[in-house]
Design a protein around this nucleic acid. Structure first.
Lengths: 192, 192
DNA sequence: TCGATTGTCTAGCGGTGCTAGGATCGGGTC
DNA sequence: GACCCGATCCTAGCACCGCTAGACAATCGA
């Protein structure tokens, strides 16, 4: 049994290596540079090894996305729990979200822009994704306003943040005014 | 001279054919299916002909984007001029925007999701893009609220619409509640 | 020690965007 | 009308992509 266990451990370790390497490469040079050949070379195995862990490139993106979702949830909760008052929490939430997107563009892409084969807003949505949404909802529910469904409010707020994050990063919005945009968004959307 | 003019005409005509065919193919089967080989085959020329009109695939996407921007501006202005009152205009604007994105996913992608090599929010931004933003601004300026820069307000509103459009289409938001999300967005963001 | 299983690699398939270089066609000139 | 020359277009091919079949080697159980 011990031998099998060791092999399983090593296999799991290699899988982590693949995901970490893919993420690293994507952050360094963008997802276009994450080819199966380059990835295989970096982990010092041949291409087919990747396919013994994942169905294909899409699943590797999905794995990076799940990792990112967990980290984002942690970051959001840390920021909101350190802030004071409803307004402070929502502002911190917004800034943390945008900051995460800006600092981890490849992870953000894996999560919300690329196809990682993950189900969203569904019963079989992976737990980390549900939890990241829950982290948003926890802080936003208190400012949704009377008679407004917290989930719906969270969706709208999230969509606005997502729009700002993506348009800013693609230089479709000038990045200088991000602070004022967040201020406006929070002032208007949140019922304080 | 007449011969040269005829050749120029034919050349311009072929360029239109390329853009129209690329757009059609993208709407039918997605941008991934728009390969230079398939596109060349559809226009009944060889691949290199494409490169005598455009620097590469990216520029073809850009051309489709410009076409789409002009159409979107027309659609937005038509919808808002037919609506009554500030609230009616903003609501119509939002629905028209999301409707355009849903009905022309490939064009929307070319405009706001893919890299068409176009400059945004810059002095050398192509005129159709500036004009589409202007169409948004025209209706949104009247509900920006006192002391809020109309341009900044438009950017935030646009980002929110963009987030809703993209997340809904990628099934990251359930599509059923779009109406209620727009209602909430307009109610909160616009000063009526 | 031997066979079977597991793991990994080499090699290759059909596709991609893009381009070099040769063929062909048509207009302008004698 | 014959010729030249430049513009125009195509064939063929480059290096790369995601992915996989099949050969090979290492390891396990009997």
């Amino acid at each position: 049994m011990s031998v099998q266990e060791r092999k399983q451990r090593e296999r799991a370790e290699r899988e982590r290596l693949i995901v970490a390497t893919a993420r690293e490469l994507a952050e360094q040079q963008g997802w276009d540079a994450v080819t199966t050949r380059r990835l295989a070379e970096r982990i010092e195995y041949s291409q087919p090894v990747l396919y013994s862990h994942f169905r294909g490139k899409r699943e590797i993106i999905g794995a990076v996305a799940l990792e990112g979702a967990a980290e984002m949830a942690v970051a959001l909760r840390a920021a909101t729990s350190a802030a004071d008052g409803p307004r402070g929490r929502v502002t911190a939430l917004a800034h943390t979200y945008l900051d995460f997107a800006a600092r981890n563009p490849a992870v953000y892409d894996a999560l919300f822009r690329l196809d990682g084969g993950l189900a969203f807003a569904d019963e079989d949505t992976p737990e980390p994704l549900k939890d990241a949404f829950a982290a948003l909802l926890e802080s936003l529910a208190e400012v949704a306003g009377d008679g407004v469904h917290p989930g719906l409010f969270t969706e709208v707020f999230w969509a606005a943040l997502h729009g700002l994050a993506t348009l800013t990063r693609e230089r479709r919005l000038p990045p200088e005014e991000t602070g004022r945009r967040v201020e406006l968004l929070v002032d208007r959307l949140a019922v304080l």
